[in-house]
């Protein structure tokens, strides 16, 4: 089972990668407002005024 000497660190490295992603997200304020994104993704595309006529 000596493969685990490689597999467990690999799994932990991946875990730390995601932890780094978490820290990066938290420090950029991604978790500040957890209500509006759910609504904002619903809004219809804000097509630039000049485009609307052409549709």
């Amino acid at each position: 089972m000596s493969l685990l000497y490689l597999l467990v660190p690999m799994a932990l490295i991946l875990g730390f990668c995601f932890l780094a992603g978490f820290i990066f997200a938290a420090s950029r304020g991604q978790f500040e407002d957890l209500e509006t994104p759910a609504h904002r993704m619903l809004l219809p595309e804000s097509t630039p005024p000049s485009e609307t006529t052409e549709r």
Binding site: E35, T36, R40, P44
Partner: peptide
């Protein structure tokens, strides 16, 4: 959210408005 964040289209001087609903 949709209405307020369309502000830049009504007021040219505004660049962006982000509303936090909570």
């Amino acid at each position: 959210v949709w209405l307020t964040e369309k502000l830049p289209e009504f007021v040219p001087g505004v660049e962006r408005l982000r509303l936090d609903l909570s």
